[in-house]
Computed example of a mutant assay.
Amino acid sequence: MSTIIGISEENRKAVAFELSKLLADEFTLYAKTRNAHWNVEGNDFHAMHLFFESQYEQLDDIMDGVAERIRTLGHYAPATLKSFLQLTHLTEKTHDKNDSPSFIKELLEDHQSIIEFIRGNIEPFASKYHDYGTSDYITGLMEDHEKMAWMLRAHLS
Rank of each mutant, 00 (worst) to 15 (best):
D44S: 13
V15G: 09
E92R: 12
A14I: 04
L152Y: 08
S100D: 15
D61Y: 02
Q86D: 15
T139W: 00
K128R: 11
F52R: 04
E41K: 15
T139H: 09
S102P: 07
F84W: 14
T33W: 05
T72H: 08
L73K: 07
I138M: 03
R34I: 15
M63R: 05
L19V: 04
I138A: 02
R69E: 01
R69N: 00
R71P: 00
D144S: 14
E116M: 14
I104F: 01
E57P: 03
F103A: 01
Y76L: 09
K82T: 11
E53Q: 09
H46M: 08
E18M: 10
H95S: 15
K105L: 08
A79P: 04
E143F: 02
S83K: 13
G133D: 07
H89G: 15
F17G: 03
T91G: 07
N121T: 04
S83E: 15
H155T: 11
S157V: 15
F125V: 12
A154N: 10
D96M: 13
F84L: 06
N39F: 09
I118C: 01
Y137N: 00
A24S: 05
F45K: 05
D110F: 03
P78G: 07
N121S: 13
A79F: 03
T91E: 15
L90F: 10
H46L: 12
D144C: 05
F27I: 13
S83A: 12
N43L: 14
Y30I: 11
L23Q: 06
I70C: 01
L156Y: 09
E10G: 02
G6E: 11
E146T: 05
T91P: 05
D61M: 11
A14G: 01
S8W: 02
W38K: 04
R69W: 00
K32D: 02
M1I: 11
K93C: 03
I104H: 05
S100C: 15
D44Y: 03
Y137Q: 00
L108Q: 06
E123I: 14
M148C: 05
K128L: 08
M148G: 05
K13H: 10
A16K: 04
S100W: 12
P78R: 08
G133W: 02
L50D: 08
G120K: 04
E109A: 08
D64H: 12
K82Y: 07
H130C: 11
D136L: 08
G6M: 04
D96I: 14
I118D: 00
L87W: 09
L29G: 12
